[in-house]
Amino acid sequence: MSLVNLHQVHKFYGDHHVLKGIDLDIKAGEVVSIIGKSGSGKSTLLRCINGLEHYQEGGITVDGKEVTTEDIQVRRLALSVGMIFQNFNLFPHMTVGENVMLAPTIVLKKSKAEAETTARAMLEKVGLAEKFDSFPEKLSGGQQQRVAIARALAMSPKVLLCDEITSALDPELVGEVLKVLEQLAKEGITLVLVTHEMNFARDVGSRVVFMHQGKVWEQGDPKTILSNPQTDELKQFMGAVL
């Protein structure tokens, strides 16, 4: 059963045609890596899925419900779609624990005790249980990103969108974040990632989607598509990143 469905999605920034008729169907449990050059529309695509960006034509559904940018709709969507950003976007004035507990208490109206139990469990999962009372600025980039993952998980989303979440990290910190993602993939959570981590896409992903000039240019099984690209554009891209 399809969890995320995009049908002929077109998006314009003024005259600039960013997404040119995207069709994409993502099933529950899939790990989909979206790759491509900058400006190919990858991040925009991701941001359309949870209503952060408006699209002009076509349709997107998540779990059967249509996605729009209306405020109420975006908030309802937040219950099933989690998102992690390149720059973490942790709230600096809250402790790690408060960051993770915020949405469960004020959006899901959970009791403080219940939210704290969830928060501790999620931080445990990302290996940061002992940082519950620390403030974000005291953590490394990799740790901050893992807290952001825990914060998204605390809302028990059906699908997690990751927008270049290792791109702002020092190389030695990338591994710890990818390890968490790999763990999540094993647990069966649906992941859609915009990424430059080809090894991760190949070893953990269930599908690779190559975007070029606002279109899905080529997609398929990671091992096949990455070792044997069919189009010249993907060959060229692979040559550039490897």
Partner: peptide
């Protein structure tokens, strides 16, 4: 980014402002 993070967590605008 801070405002978007609050939005995708499901906070409404008033909650985003105050929290």
């Amino acid at each position: 980014g801070q405002i978007e993070a609050a939005k995708v967590l499901g906070l409404n605008f008033r909650q985003t402002l105050t929290r």
